[in-house]
Amino acid sequence: MDIGAVLETAILQFIGFNACYYAIAAIGLNVQFGYAGLLNFGQAGFMAAGAYGLGQTVQIFEISLWWGLLIGIGYATFLGLLMGVPTLRLRSDYLAIVTIASAEIVRLVVRSVKFRGQFGGTDGLTGFARAYQQVGVDLGLDLAGQYGFWIFTFSGRNLWNLIVGWTLVAIFGTIVWLLMRSPWGRVLKAIREDEDAVRSLGKNVYSYKMQALILGGVIGSFAGMMLALGNATVQPDNFSRDLTFFVLTGLVLGGVAKVTGSIVGPMLFWFIYSFLDSFLRQLIDKPVRIGDFTLIQSTDVGVVVFMIMGVLLVLLMVYRPQGLFGNRKEMAFEGR
């Protein structure tokens, strides 16, 4: 067994592209779920809104890629309004139901044959990322080359993605950090606990919830844009329910209502996932048998990894419900 190789793969995932766009999505989700207490189970829908807004520019609208930023933000805002208007006046459970359904509707619409001309159907959209890559080239990166750091080697394309991605993480992390230290953030945290108390003190709770939903959604749309740019393609099935819940798992792992938690959590999620995956693959290179019964074989590893991650998540909830960076004291008081 080569534990060094296992660790190397895991560390690469820790700082890798997946962790990076998950972190952006989790920063957005944290605004909604962590601070405002809005159960958004449709972050994948917001990510799709961003990704498709960007993807449509060159291939469908035949305009510059950079308009896609505005289109993506516009789509995400529209989606937020669509989800929020009917549900934010109701109990939070309704938002959960509506968001999970909306994200699925978004995915089914963009992959449908009917809207193939607008969203590219199951093939998705491609050919829009050139302008993005050109910026990297203009800055002096050799996208086809190899860059070595310490024990790691990155392709030029991957390095460019990481630079842009982690810059976005830093920007959105700072924005949310600033907002949550402001009176605006205080209102949000108060709403999370008791809407009526906040209402009685003269705050328009509905408006604040809408702002949080849309802000978190727009940040989520940037995660989708990053995913689209990094892969240079938009595929409808990237935006399944799994995505939402993996992002949520990362956030909970790191600790809700903490900016550091929303960034480091998704990184750890990918570290643990990749560590378990390559560790088990090395461990189970041939089927393990008890008599005639095959207990486990290499094709089972993918499933087993998620089982182990599920158990780890349960243990986390039992022994450290605030996550790694969360505030235990803050979590300890019940909303009485």
Partner: peptide
């Protein structure tokens, strides 16, 4: 107004 069941925001 205040409330019959106190609504202090315990986590703030």
């Amino acid at each position: 107004r205040t409330f019959q069941l106190t609504k202090s925001l315990t986590k703030l």
